[in-house]
Simulated assay, not measured.
Amino acid sequence: MRICIYGAGAIGGYMGAKLARAGAEVALVARGPHLAAMRSKGLTLLEEGADPVTVPVRAAEDPADLGPQDYVIVTLKAHSVPAVVPAMQPLLGPATTVVSAVNGVPWWYFHGVEGPLAGTRLASVDPGDVQWTGIGPARVLGCVVYPAAEIAESGVVRHIEGNRFSLGEPDGSKSERALRLAEALTAAGLKAPVRPRIRDEIWVKLWGNLSFNPISALTHATLDVLCTDPGTRAVARGMMVEAQAIAEALGVKFPIDVDRRIDGGAAVGAHRTSMLQDLDAGRPMEIDALVTAVQELGRLTGHPTPTIDTVQALVALRARTAGLYGTAR
């Protein structure tokens, strides 16, 4: 089984190191100093309570150097994916599965569903249908990413917490391709349940990302603060209530209520969200997949999103002012 991880940063590097250590045939697509370090020294994984482990990995900047794969696991941020679809083509053989390990509303959301929205394409996350036509929804296996990791230095990934990558077919089936990948990830010491309702998990994670991320970018507050301050908690709650109405109109079932979800965010502690980290580091901000896409789904389902609209307008202007919105398109 040939597995390529496209975008071997923190999460992709963590997964790649675990797979490589378990003996899987894995290749990583990366760039810059991180790529150079992996090529010259291997990929080092730091896990709490364990000695550092360095594994040799096959790493490349040009996917054409790797050839067709059985699985391509995309761990880029959503706004970066459309631009790399042309470069990804040499990895795609007739039976290649593309695993969408990307935060937010996925571009393939309406593939494999029934009803009037079946096959609907989302311009907010797939402008020009680049992924729909260049990858194809039939190739896609959904994935919800739970681990947290960071690049400690070039070629070195530090695992912070979590080891679950939930998998799910868009049509809810337990396919052979999903089970085979779950087996490989499990053999690498990761949790990889195959879920019949992957969209439910997508929305529970999105619930927090939709609200906590942009509010933190606007206020520079950590999770414990924005989830307990009465004003910002109320804004987050308003966004989440609007999102819940949209999701439930699409058939999603939430296993917890809004307030428990916010309390869970507060319990994480003084965490700086990924959007705030991107703003501070001068990286393009992940607004469309986390916020704008929910607005688009609101329009499709006929559910108003006044709180989401307000926060999206503010965070989009903040990102544009910093030159960090739309720059990756």
Rank of each mutant, 00 (worst) to 15 (best):
M1N: 04
R2S: 14
I5V: 15
I5N: 02
Y6A: 10
A10C: 00
I11P: 02
I11E: 06
G13L: 07
G13E: 03
G16H: 03
K18Y: 03
A20K: 00
A24V: 09
L28D: 01
A30C: 11
R31L: 10
G32I: 04
L35K: 04
S40E: 15
S40N: 03
L46W: 10
E48H: 14
D51L: 13
V53K: 06
T54D: 04
V57L: 09
E61F: 05
D65K: 13
D65L: 13
L66V: 09
P68W: 00
D70Q: 00
Y71A: 03
K77A: 08
K77V: 06
H79T: 00
P82Q: 03
A83F: 01
A87K: 14
M88F: 11
Q89M: 09
P90M: 10
G93E: 12
G93L: 08
P94Y: 09
A95Q: 14
T96H: 08
V99Q: 05
V102S: 09
W108D: 14
Y109H: 12
F110D: 01
V113M: 10
G115V: 00
P116L: 07
P116K: 14
A118H: 08
A118C: 11
A118F: 10
G119Q: 13
R121E: 14
V125M: 07
V125Y: 05
V130R: 15
Q131Y: 04
Q131M: 15
G136Y: 02
A138C: 01
V140E: 06
V140Q: 00
V140Y: 06
C143L: 14
Y146L: 08
P147N: 05
E150F: 03
I151M: 10
V156W: 02
R158Q: 14
N163M: 03
L167P: 03
E169Y: 05
K174L: 14
R177H: 14
A178Q: 06
A184P: 12
L190K: 10
V194E: 02
I198H: 02
I202A: 07
V204T: 15
K205W: 08
K205A: 08
L206I: 11
W207Q: 12
W207G: 07
G208D: 10
A217E: 04
A217W: 03
T219C: 01
H220L: 12
D224P: 08
L226D: 05
C227Y: 05
P230S: 12
R233Y: 09
A236D: 02
G238M: 07
M240N: 02
Q244E: 14
A247S: 09
A247I: 08
L250T: 08
P255Q: 13
I256S: 15
D257L: 00
V258F: 04
R260I: 00
R261E: 05
G264Y: 10
G269V: 06
S274E: 07
D278P: 00
L279G: 05
D280P: 08
A281S: 15
E286N: 04
I287T: 02
D288H: 07
A289P: 07
L300T: 12
T301W: 11
H303Y: 04
I308S: 13
D309K: 09
D309A: 15
D309Q: 12
T310C: 15
V311Q: 02
A313N: 06
A313D: 12
L314V: 01
V315L: 03
V315I: 14
A316Q: 13
L317G: 08
A319M: 05
A319P: 02
Y325G: 00
T327P: 10
R329E: 15
